[in-house]
């Protein structure tokens, strides 16, 4: 791929990001025109207090002035202060990010590995008992609501059997620091991670199954078999990579949703990540926080989409040539 093409794609992504930033401004001004009145409903504020709060929230001046101030601050990653805690939004977001990355990242990688393998086996043996069982599992897990599955696992494994903690990220009375703390956190992460893994893998399996079925008809697989390769060699050396091509974009996009993907599950398990933060901010509503979160979530999708487009040519020589 030429440098010009890369530059074009990067510029395209930046343009999309700029659009999202602008859109965000209007979205939140339309949703809530007077947060001061909403937040302090039922409390008697003096005019001076009201003006001070309005200024603090950056809601004074004309809309145009607000817009320029918003743009300037956003470029400096300053999203204002949370209505709820009065802490800078960016600090709260950074504090919650590692937990979400750990939980959703692990689940996504696991779900992808298991789901893609399931899809390959099911599609390659289309119509067999293997296929029916695997596809059945995929469809069921795909259509199961995450929060319902989470609550089910929580009830059975945490409440009834007592094998896992019911929520949070660590045991307050547990070990502090070192390997002990890490193991404690892993123990807390197990159930939400299992929930998300199950919830995600069906989609990967179904996508992969249909790509493999499409590829299985190709003439070059007949030739590969005629050469004398084993069935598994035909599948792994010739079918797999071609089947992965159409799924690359989808897979990359699913990584883009890693940050925003776990709102319900984090809430069910009180996992202190971005999902729980989003849920709590929605209840406020904590507009600056939501604004920051939405921007981050959109940016993640845009970045991974860009990554997919830049990666694709390395997988498909036909695209590389252009």
């Amino acid at each position: 791929m030429t440098a010009r093409l890369v530059a074009g794609k990067v510029l395209g992504a930046l343009g999309t990001l700029a659009f999202v930033v602008v859109f965000n401004f209007f979205l939140f001004r339309v949703v809530e025109s007077n947060p001061v009145a909403t937040l302090y409903r039922g409390r008697n504020l003096t005019d001076a207090q009201r003006e001070e709060l309005t200024r603090q929230f950056g809601l004074d001046g004309s809309k145009l002035e607000q817009f320029w101030r918003y743009m300037e601050q956003t470029l400096q990653l300053n999203f204002g202060r949370s209505y709820a805690t009065n802490q800078p939004v960016i600090d709260e977001i950074w504090a919650a990010t590692p937990q979400t990355l750990a939980l959703v990242g692990t689940s996504t990688v696991l779900a992808m590995a298991i789901g893609l393998a399931m899809g390959v086996v099911a599609g390659w043996r289309r119509g067999t008992a293997h296929d029916r069982v695997l596809t059945g599992i995929s469809i069921v897990t795909w259509s199961t609501p995450e929060f319902w599955l989470g609550m089910l696992l929580l009830t059975v494994f945490a409440v009834d059997l007592g094998l896992f903690p019911t929520g949070g990220i660590s045991d307050p009375s547990g070990p502090d620091g070192g390997l002990g703390e890490l193991l404690d956190q892993a123990h807390h992460m197990a159930l939400p991670c299992l929930t998300l893994t199950i919830a995600y893998l069906g989609e990967y399996a179904l996508i992969m199954r249909s790509s493999i079925i499409d590829v299985a008809r190709e003439d070059y697989l007949t030739l590969a078999r005629a050469k004398g390769l084993r069935d598994a060699q035909v599948r792994d050396r010739h079918a797999l990579r071609n089947a992965l091509l159409p799924s690359t974009t989808l897979i990359a996009l699913s990584f883009g949703f890693v940050l925003s993907g776990a709102i319900t599950v984090e809430t069910v398990f009180s996992w202190p990540g971005l999902g729980l933060l989003t849920y709590e901010s929605l209840r406020g509503p904590d507009l600056p926080m939501l604004q920051g979160l939405f921007l981050l979530f959109s940016a993640a999708v845009i970045v991974f989409n860009l990554a997919a487009e830049l990666l694709y040519p390395y997988l498909d020589p036909r695209v590389r040539a252009r």
Partner: peptide
């Protein structure tokens, strides 16, 4: 059968366009 394929008898398949793996 796998041993015989290609070493005893080989086929030039119909459709050169699609008989080669596009990513190899």
């Amino acid at each position: 059968l796998r041993a015989v394929r290609w070493s005893e008898m080989a086929i030039v398949f119909q459709g050169a366009l699609h008989s080669l793996n596009p990513v190899q």
